[in-house]
Each structure stands twice: as C-alpha cells, then as structure tokens.
Amino acid sequence: MNQHPGIIGKKLGATQIFLDDGTVVACTVVQAGSTVVGKRTLERDGYDALIVGFGEKTARRSNKSEIVAMEKAGVAIPQVMRELRCSAEHAAKYELGQILKIEEIFEEGQKVDVQSKSRGRGFQGVFRRYHFSGLPATHGTHEWRRHGGSIGTNMTPGRVMLGKKMPGQMGNATVSVLNQRIVRLLPEQQLILLEGNVPGAANAMVRIQGAVKKKNGGKK
C-alpha cells in the first residue's frame, strides 16, 4: 500500500504551460490545501495514517458523528474526508488543523500516483466500453450489429471464461494513474500541475501520493 506522503485536492481542469526551454506540456491543475483533521495510530488503530479534510461545510449539512469528532479535534467540518496511509514519522510532523503544504510534501519533477473517481458513463455496450467492432452492417445481419458476438464455446469448458468482456457499468470507478510527473508547484496558490490527464471530471476529489513503484516516492 502506498504510504508515501501525499495530499488530497480538487481537480480544477486542464491547460497547457511552457517549460523554460519552450516545450509545451499539457497538464491538469489540482487545487491542494487539505487540512489534517485526525490521525490513526499503530497502537490504537493498528496502522498509521493521517485523516485529511478538504473544503468546509456547515453543521446543518453534517451528521452528528462528524460534528462531534471535528469539535473534539478543534477543526472546521470538512466537505470531504480521506485517510492517507503514511509512516509514523510523517504523521508526527503534523498537528490537527494544520494544512498539508504542497511544497513540504512534493517537489517539482517528482513522480506521483494519482487516484480519483472516473466519470460515470452508466451501463454501456461493448462498442463504447471495449471498442468492439461489432458485426457487418449488411449481408443479412439481423438486429445484431452492435453485439459482441459469441461469448465462448459449448461443452468445453461449458461456461463463460472469467473476465469475458461484456456490457456493463462503465466509469464511476476508482482509477489510479501511476508515475505522473509534477510539472510545477505553485505554493502561493497551493496548485499542483500534473503532466497529462487525471481521471474524473472537474471538481472531482483527487488523491496524490508519492509514486509507489519508484524509489524514494518518486523524488529525485
């Protein structure tokens, strides 16, 4: 499990910027600025993690457990709460109510893992979902044009193979993108510019942590 330091943020949209040498880089802008609202400790919970919150919401829109827990922690009720697994040393650096500053956690050029919920497309057929090419449009094809064709053989093995691509729910799933590069950090505005695309629509919550498949969490 990814235990590198990270943050949660809000996807704002995509744009492009110029690097110092004039190269154009398409990037996604993520608004950071999440607050530590709680902690998990090894002794009490069995693992170390920071509970971070993003945004604010009124008590009227919150349930009682949120109100009481945040009152106890002495922080405003966040709109969204997530747990970020981390080392005990990293968790010890932060106190409740403290903002996770991007310049302390990330560096420019670092590889990070980005996790977010993809746009929901609903129940989709195999054309849209898996780019099947369907059947011939003419030559006697009978109401069978956008279908996936055969789904297997008869007696052997007598069942449909596991993982067979068929129509179903597309999108609205948690998607992780590994090793995305941080093109730029803008600490005054707490903005992170990630190279390429990030799953989900604008205003989606995004979890950014150091790359799990790189040494030192993707830092240089």
Partner: peptide, 14 residues
Amino acid sequence: MKSPVVQALEASLI
C-alpha cells in the same frame, strides 16, 4: 466552464 483559477493561470501565460 473553465475554473477561474485555471483562467487566471492561462492569462499569466499570454
């Protein structure tokens, strides 16, 4: 609708 933050960021590049 483009986020005002992204709009400002783009405006600074022009």
